[in-house]
Nucleic acid binder design. Structure first.
Length: 423
RNA sequence: GGAGAAAUGGCAGAGCGGUCUAAUGCGGCAGUCUUGAAAACUGUUGUGGGUAACACCACCGGGGGUUCGAAUCCCUCUUUCUCCGCCA
């Protein structure tokens, strides 16, 4: 959620920035400001009524103590009248606040001025590419065929147990998953991230804190009996650790990481994009989260980008980094880099990581603050990134490393898998 | 799941209808003393809204109610503790 102060002080800048996301903010923001004036006017009026009521109540107490019952009763009547009007005003005030809140949550985060304009994924800016695009010999197979050939991943069995999009990993595939998770966690902790094992179901307040609720409710699995949500990413519980927290400046940056399964309903996506491991309802991911000082958050974003690039390099996967254009960015992000691995048999770039700076958009909702040099509290910046999401990494590894003798495992993973080939 | 007790400022803990703008202790910060530190002493120390700045307003787990007045009474939800039952 955008900060009111920011809208108040830099409305034109906000409008300009939101235009990068193709969002026409002027009508909404002007309405918000109008309501804001009304809110403050109402509050002033309400406060002075409450003040009056407080004073009367004290006087009544005094009079009773002095035994002046008649005078006290008279004052009581006056107080009832004051209370009646303050009650009405309080109701009005609440309505204004709610209305304002309702408008504010509809406004996406202001993108950084570094974000390229554009409408679709085609307008994303390719900022970096590394690794050779493999040319596979004729007869090479996509990962779902390899998965069947080596009895690695059973999609039909997942359908039997749960439904489409819940695959069963077996044998060396299960071991490969475990190896990747451990590799990613070891790397993250070596880079100073504190490993967290969070709950994978969260309550409503947490869903709201990171922005999944109220808007993207349909994307999460919802256990209605207990009103809990299956997390779509570890970002949700890990970032919410800091909900309603005031950090000390010297605690920044906070660096946390965690492995969790992730659950996404992905309602309405079908077709060949969802083939095999390309899009699942349940998948594994290691997430990195940072809470940074506002002056440092873009440095932090670059640090995270460099970190993720290192993982891709070590997995020997050809990859590219896209700076997402305004139209393709998420609602909450101010700047996002997507990492895509080239999956050689599908001859497709697959998104394997998304690294974003949310600036104060999440922390405003979370009330995540720190005490600055002036000893005043201010909102911190939050950032997160996948490091990495497993399924598409597995898809690319299987496809790119296939040989007539089997599938080669990248050197860096062998200590974790205990085998160097799947055959 | 059943029965009982409880939830107060960074922490501990008082407060049981009106000087609560919440006692006291610990911790934090600033100062005095000291070459420096410790100890001691003095002062200060919640969050948010509001204001040009003050004033002022709200907040004692969440929500609602009673009352002129609620941390204090009532209802409800959540959480924690104790006992019982079940159990990885």
């Amino acid at each position: 959620m955008l900060q009111l102060n920011y809208i108040r002080e830099k409305k034109e800048e906000a409008i300009e920035r939101l235009a990068i996301k193709n969002f026409d903010a002027r009508p909404v923001l002007e309405q918000v400001l109008e309501l804001d004036n009304e809110r403050r006017r109402t509050q002033n009026e309400l406060d002075s009524l409450l003040n009056e009521a407080n004073i009367i109540a004290k006087q009544v107490g005094e009079l009773y103590k002095q035994g002046k019952r008649a005078e006290a009763d008279e004052l009581k009547n006056k107080s009832v009248a004051v209370k009646e009007s303050s009650g009405k005003l309080a109701e009005q005030f609440k309505q204004i606040e709610e209305q304002q809140q309702q408008l504010l949550v509809q406004v996406p985060n202001t993108p950084s001025f570094k974000v390229p304009k554009g409408k679709t994924a085609a307008d994303n800016e390719n900022v970096y590419q590394e690794g050779e695009i493999p040319k596979l010999p004729a007869g090479s197979k996509p990962h779902w065929e390899l998965a069947a050939q080596y009895d690695l991943i059973d999609f039909e069995l997942g359908v039997k147990l749960t439904g489409a999009g819940f695959p069963v990993y077996k044998g060396k595939a299960a071991r490969l998953q475990r190896a990747l998770i451990n590799f990613f966690l070891d790397r993250a902790t070596a880079s100073g991230y504190l490993e967290i094992q969070p709950p994978i179901m969260v309550n409503e307040a947490s869903g709201y804190g990171t922005g999944q609720l109220p808007d993207k409710e349909g994307q999460m699995y919802h256990a209605t009996i207990d009103n809990l949500y299956m997390i779509p990413t570890a970002e949700v519980p890990i970032t919410n650790i800091y909900r309603d927290v005031i950090l000390k400046a010297d605690q920044l940056p906070v660096k946390n990481c965690g492995y969790t399964p992730c659950f996404r309903r992905e309602a309405g996506s079908y077709g060949k994009d969802v083939r095999g491991l390309n899009r699942l309802h349940q998948f594994d991911k290691v997430e990195i989260v940072q809470i940074a000082h506002p002056d440092k958050s873009y440095e932090t974003l670059e640090e995270m980008r460099t970190y993720v690039a290192g993982l891709m390099r070590d997995l020997e996967l050809p990859f590219r980094i896209l700076k997402l254009c305004g139209g393709d960015m998420s609602f909450a992000s101010a700047l996002t880099y997507d990492f895509e691995a080239f999956s050689a048999a599908q001859e497709k770039w697959l998104e394997v990581s998304s690294v974003s700076n949310f600036e104060t958009f999440q922390s405003n909702r979370l009330k995540l603050r720190f005490r600055g040099a002036d000893n005043k509290t201010q909102l911190a910046h939050t950032l997160n990134g996948s490091a990495l999401a497993l399924p598409r990494i597995v898809a690319s590894l299987l496809e790119n490393n296939q040989t007539p003798e089997g599938i080669k495992i990248p050197k860096v993973l062998v200590p974790y898998t205990g085998f160097s080939a799947i055959n």
